[in-house]
Amino acid sequence: MARLLSIIVLVVIWAIAAALVHSRMLPGPLAVVSEIVTETASGELPYQMGCTLARVVVAFSISLVLGALAGFAMGRWKRVDRYADPWLVVLLNLPALVTIIFAYIWIGLTETAAILAVALNKLPNVVVVMREGARSLDPELDEMARAFGLTGSVRMRHVVIPQLVPYFAAASRSGLSIAWKIVLVAELIGRPNGVGFVLGSAFSLFDLTKILSYALTFIAVMLTIENLLVQPLERRAQRWRRRT
């Protein structure tokens, strides 16, 4: 309830401000909504949104899988951590823009380059979170598994992965929001479609209504994914926790 109320207040403030300013620089909520409707009807908005979402999903999956593996290895084995940590620090502090530019220059203005750049940007965050998860694995449960001679795959499925699920969820949650922001930059610079591309051309035309309509739709889509996909999955994985 509180959330809904706070969103309504935000929209009302926006509407009043737009009415007062009465300028192209600040379109009101109604103008933005009607823009969303026409863009959706023409098929333009769903198409651009689809391009961006596809890139987000692919880049995000790549970084999640690679990051989980690398993070697990680094958290589990100190040797690996010692060697890989400097690389991680470099990657962590590499500006997203630099990765994108290099990817485009080296690979060309291609889909592969865009996705690779985004995945590479996201990777270190996943690694850091998963490394923390692997470090916090319970040695007592590990010992129990060894004592009872559980096989590697059983151990992985029943002992290790359940302990990593909260970290995985945290990594994907923060990852999703970071990934789509970076995807927009990659699209702005070197792709002929996607939300980032649309925002770029709207910028050159000073079309703020379009910018706002695409941005808001994107936020709505991301919130839907979070609520309908990420949260239910997390709840399912955590159902053993005692209700308090």
């Binding site: 007592e140 449960l141 010992e143 129990m144 029943h158 002992v159 359940p162 053993w240 926790r241």
Partner: peptide
Amino acid sequence: EPRLLPWR
């Protein structure tokens, strides 16, 4: 300690 898997 019991050392059971809390998620099972």
